[in-house]
Design a protein around this nucleic acid. Structure first.
Lengths: 341, 341
DNA sequence: TTGTATGCGTTATCAC
DNA sequence: GTGATAACGCATACAA
């Protein structure tokens, strides 16, 4: 049987009210009493019964904002479905959690949405990609005002947040490189295409890729590493050029978006049956290329699971005041092949 | 704001007590009244507030049994750790759930453990593998007596249970076959080794493997399909023979246990760098073979996640009386390579 | 056959 | 500064 406030009050020879005040750091309690009660709380390892809290807190509703960017390559409907499951689960416990899912593809949109959420009185924010410093600053401001922020999917340096939920990109890069060694003949030439190599995740993926090549003594040579700036047209051009330059190219590792342009280039160069492609995530264009047999593997970090993890951590923090123990949480990478779809 | 018993009582112009009696199908309420109340409950889509229930039910503790077999290839400590997390989570809500994790490797041990659990007054059972009909019959009996049973990891025909949590083995087989097509040269010869092909999961894996070979028009030929009866010695013998018989063998798909014997055979035949192995799950011997570069892929169905899913469903059923909507729940297969370890 | 009272643990609002 | 008390939604024992 767990310890209750009532019991603490009894032991400390005070009333429940006082215990409550101590627990919530509210003023109006003698220093000595506070210390005594606090000691008992610690000694008996008291933790509140969440059911009791849930029952009381039926008055005020919670309100979270989930901000995603198109880059997470999952449809907003899917995110909503995932969110719905969690909201329903909490509803069963009598807790009304409202979650507004918005999508933005640039900084100014994000800022506008943040302002809108703030006006409605937000209790917490999970954000999948922070586009610019201006947004980061805004989020820092929120944190300073006691509104918790969790970043997921893509992190940013110098941003204040209670934690980050993401993937181990460097490991993902290692896995890709290992996969190439399994499917390519010896001494193969491989090219790497990123969209913006400055994006942390892509930088780490590439790093991991190279690290394993070295450490495993792989025979693969990376002949080119180019940026398509997230544009399919540029992607097409780049890959076409590379194909011309290296007619014996055997593999392409695409760490970000732009798979569609890549696919077209391979087909128009008639290299699509010779070049094996490994990509990340499961955008519609990647799925299509898998069905066509051009993309052989895609390494995914279920953005849905990341999102729901973020919401759970956010809820725990807001409702139960439990701070995430880790600064970063990783979801395991999923290796996807055509048969997995 | 959700609807409450109180409100239903008000609308039906009866007391809370009566509503409660109707909700719990207890006797002592007029037929007409019962009908009226029931209609209101349905019309307003009433669902109980679990927090309220949790608060009341602090008196009686719940007691679940989790029975695993060595075949699930996860250490009992890991299972306990996983169980612990869930128990703590419920504890936070004031619900004391006791879970006893036992491991048995044959039917008579399982029967003994079941009896032991029954004597202690069990509220539900999650079982990872049912060895014989005698155990299945015992479980059917429990179900008849209102003690819910969930099977996970491995199912059995003709067993009564509220649902099953497992994997889509046929899909797993398809994935393996797809992987072979990616890593093997054209027209390769492949052998399949199972331990007991009568085990449902292995049967389905093999079926899926063959199905995809046919449907995709693969150039792979399966030259042999043998059973090692779960014995490493037999596994060694079988694989040695196969290696001798097919010196140009390129791949082995091992659907069950016995990887250690297989590895030794490949090494002693000096075929280990020529033959690519795909296996299932992550037993210590599989991990070792991956590190040695012999096993290239292993397809896993996180038994831990299966177990925790089973417990969650069990809890939902026992505590909230919510029957699982599906008869079978599948976890997604994980494709594991050396770099994933 | 029906209604009422009590308690579960927490929070918040009074009163002292 | 401190203590008592009324909800919150539910289950149950008891009263009518």
């Amino acid at each position: 049987m767990r310890i209750t406030q009532e019991e603490i009050a009894e032991i400390a020879e005070v009333s429940r009210g006082t215990v409550d005040r101590v627990l919530h750091n509210r003023p109006g309690v003698n220093k000595d009493v506070r210390l005594r009660v606090n000691n008992i709380i610690k000694a008996l390892d008291y933790t509140p019964n969440v059911a009791g809290q849930a029952l009381v807190c039926r008055k005020r509703n919670l309100f979270f904002g989930v901000m995603i960017s198109p880059n997470i390559q999952t449809s907003i409907e899917e995110v909503r479905r995932e969110v719905f499951i969690q909201v329903e689960e909490l509803r069963a416990w009598g807790i009304e959690l409202n979650i507004e899912v918005t999508t933005a593809s640039n900084a100014s949109e994000q800022l506008k949405q943040l302002d809108c959420l703030l006006k409605q009185g937000i209790d917490g924010i999970a954000i999948a990609q922070v586009f610019e410093k201006s947004v980061a600053e805004k989020l820092n401001e929120l944190m300073a005002n006691g509104i918790p922020v969790i970043t997921f999917y893509q992190d940013l340096d110098n941003i204040r947040r209670i934690c980050h939920v993401g993937q181990d990109d460097s490991k993902a890069g290692e896995i890709s490189s290992g996969l190439f060694d399994l499917i390519l003949p010896r001494n193969s030439k491989v090219a790497i295409i990123s969209d913006f190599s400055e994006f942390i995740c892509q930088k780490y993926r590439e790093e991991g890729f190279f690290r394993r090549l070295r450490s495993s003594g792989s025979s693969i040579t990376v002949v080119e590493s180019a940026e398509n700036l997230g544009q399919d047209l540029l992607s097409f051009k780049l890959v076409s050029e590379i194909c011309k330059k290296y007619p014996d190219l055997k593999g392409i590792y695409i760490t970000g978006t732009g798979a569609e342009g890549l696919g077209k280039a391979l087909k128009s160069s008639e290299m699509h049956s010779q070049v094996q492609v490994i990509s990340h995530e499961l955008s519609p264009s990647v799925i299509k290329l898998m069905e066509e047999g051009i993309v052989k593997f895609s390494i995914c970090h279920n953005p849905l699971r990341q999102g729901s993890m973020a919401i759970q951590l956010l809820f725990k923090f807001v409702f139960r005041k439990i701070k995430p123990v880790n600064e970063k949480y990783y979801v395991e990478p999923d290796i996807i092949t055509y048969e997995c779809l």
